[in-house]
Design a protein around this nucleic acid. Sequence first.
RNA 1: GCGCCUGUAGCUCAGUUGGAUAGAGCAACGGACUUCUAAUCCGUGGGCCGAGAGUUCGAAUCCCUCCAGGCGCACCA
Length: 558
Amino acid sequence: MGKIMKNVIINMLEKALKVSVQKGQLSEFSLPYLELEPPANPEHGDYAANTAMILAAQIKQNPRKIAQIIQENISDTENIVEKIQIAGPGFINFFIKDDVWKRTLKKINEQNGKYGETDYGAGRRVQVEFVSANPTGPLHIGHARGAVVGDVISNLLKTSGYKVAKEYYINDAGNQMNNLGKSVLLRYRELLGEKIDFPESCYRGEYIKDIAGKIIKDEGEKYLNTDELSAINYFTSIAGRVILEEIKADLKDFGVVFDEYFSEKELYKNDGVTKLLDKLQKKGFVYSDGETLWFKTTDFGDEKDRVVVRKNGEPTYFAADIAYHQNKFDRGFETVIDIWGADHHGYMPRMRAGIQALGHNKESLKIILVQLVNLLRGGVPAAMSTRSGEFVTLREVLDEVGRDAARYNFLMRRSDSHLDFDLEVAKKQSNENPVYYVQYAHARICSILKMAQERGIDMPAYIDTDLSLLNEPEEKSLIKMLVRYPETVHGAAKSLEPHRIPFYLNELAGVFHSYYNKNKVISEDNRLTAARLFLIMMIRIVLENALDILGVSAPQKM
RNA sequence: GCGCCUGUAGCUCAGUUGGAUAGAGCAACGGACUUCUAAUCCGUGGGCCGAGAGUUCGAAUCCCUCCAGGCGCACCA
């Protein structure tokens, strides 16, 4: 699981800075955040550091001069640097030795499915909460994006050495659920011949009728005569259960499986909410105006205080949600990540206030906002009205475009960017659809390996492979890309930005396709064939590992 | 009215806490299959990074003011 190369160089820089100060060549400074980046132009080396230019502002010296001092004091303990150049306004450019890149292929071969894993998280416990839709209807396309983003962020964190738990908070208490029960009851009566004027506020989807029909089939007409309140309660619990099971099934087929489903109702049963309110009261963050109980979220930057107990004595959703978050920390999670639809962004300040009032570090709660999905069909907006029940469900998307294409499309863009999702494009098996571009690269490699086998060529082992034969420019950049894979995963995990993986994959697949078209892997030259086979085997491993993080399949054949 | 997100090629979007000459895919145009998969490749064109002012060695990126679109502004969740 070694260190990623980037960090090895950053360590070298840090040491060199210390030495420079000790020697008195540089005056004291506060250590800046050191960042390395692969330069756009390969003539500028493999990694470029802007350290000297950042320091220049702080200690008032010429950046090129600083760069020079740093360069003199760098000791290459791992023996990986070919040369260091100072260029432009004061960049320190690192050129890595050729054989270092190639040695990394050995690591990929050994680590195989584990290549890309790092221990950046050091086993710290993180919880990722996402989807959390209340079970009043099937998941729709908007939930789907949040589901994939949450799932892949969890995978990234796991790969980076965190202990991750994925959790779904079931909002199974409150008005909306009551509404659900009422909707089912009304459909129940309707199916049994009563004339019903179906109110606007109720859920109108077909699934409501299905549930009502099922109750009739199982239990007959007896709820026509029971009192309305207990009938609604009963119908609520049945409908909630049925719908939640469907949600779970849809998610499973979408490749999203949770470690835990946490029920809001259970929270109430265990007095979680009352205890929480007591706690806030003791800390003095709660006050009453005689009718309702308010939480002073303004103490933490919210624009107004928020109600936690209503006039009618019922706690608000917000009260339960703070109790829920306290519960998360009680269970030992160091960091808690919430993934919300962007339409909930106004809720952020009060949630942050909640956890701070309870004495938690502001940084321990991270909220990712996922922008809404603009659903299109052939460029034309598709109907998305929840009220009428005419929304496009996750199930329909899965049936129509398939899991791989759906997931990949949701992952290609930054979470906070609005996403156009065109059903016609997403289901097209063509070059308009990037997921196939990447999968095709994987299938192509499998096909070459199969061909080699059929011709009786043994799969080369590292020890039998002379990698110095790989000197085509595409070969060099392929190898470098493979080495950068762990950095990419690490960066994506650190910034909670899953979209970086599809971008990496597109680039890797692109260089490979280009290489493939220009060069024969299998040739008369046995040694070269072995070296190239080994290279594409390593590419295949990285493609598979990365696709695996995305929850997208890596087909052998297409 | 207030708050959050977004504005980069014709379209959809990247651009790594400010870096070297702004990138990719699609679309358009012109080429490459008796060869390990043409769901591929090679080439061409395409830009006032929404506008304006500022900060500095250096700005698509940071500050301020506007403009446009989306989403919020509950004792709903």
